[in-house]
Nucleic acid binder design. Structure first.
Lengths: 127, 127
DNA sequence: GCAAGTACACACCTTTTGGTGCCTATGGAG
DNA sequence: CTCCATAGGCACCAAAAGGTGTGTACTTGC
């Protein structure tokens, strides 16, 4: 295997696991789900209602990946009817700050992006 | 009381443009490219070398989308041979702080994620 | 003349992502 | 008895993301 002369971890190095960590949260749903859980533990149904547009399949799939990587904790009280709660792990909590900041950036900046997009499309329409 | 005509913008609302803004940067490459540009303007070739693993096609495609939404500026000095520079726009700069924080989180936390993943897979292998 | 570098565009293909519908088991409401 | 809610699993399919390989227009250097 290639030994890097510089062992400093970098997301710019595609062979570094830091890249995997970034890609884990780079998707469409992980950001929203983690942000939703930043407010406190939630059940499957609550997340389904909170995160608009997510399907049951994608919710389960994303939660599994996040649990697998130790960002969230799944607590199944083996009752009937089922009762399962998800919460941020300690590592997950170190991430939620940056994610909340991203969400607020989106909520603040989308008008500027919409305007820029309209301008760009108008300028390149007659090409 | 919230009036029905003006809902508070939220990334949790799939019909809100804030969601589009989030998804614009949610991909695999936008985060890395924007972070790379946070250090200063760069040319196509320099980005290609800096962002490990990106293909020419994905680089161009991502730069176009970012330019379209006004996050970066493309400056083409119509010379031969071609010389094109990309740099963050004012709006793009408001984003780079959160992105750099995310990158550093990934570089700090990937060992914990790797360990958690190994534990999870070992626990669920017998099935 | 020929190769190299620049910043792409375009076609083709594979992989990943995401959506829908149907299934499980249970207890409570009607 | 039927319907609903609970938290999913599983199969099938469509769409999007992403990779590879080629071509282009031009100049400089050999």
């Amino acid at each position: 295997m290639a030994k890097p002369g510089k062992p400093r971890p970098s997301v710019f190095d595609e062979t570094c696991s830091a890249r995997d960590a970034l890609e884990l949260i780079a998707g469409k749903w992980p950001m929203l789900i983690l942000t939703a859980l930043a407010d406190g533990p939630m059940r499957n149904g609550a997340l389904l209602r909170r995160v608009g547009g997510v399907s049951q399949k994608m919710l389960t799939q994303t939660l599994r990946e996040l649990e697998r990587n130790g960002l969230i904790v799944r607590e199944d009280r083996a009752t009937v009817p089922p009762h399962v709660e998800y919460r941020l792990s300690a590592v997950g909590r170190t991430l939620s700050g940056a994610l909340v900041e991203l969400d607020r950036w989106a909520e603040r900046s989308f008008p500027a992006l919409d305007a820029a997009r309209a301008r760009f499309d108008a300028a390149n329409r007659r090409r």
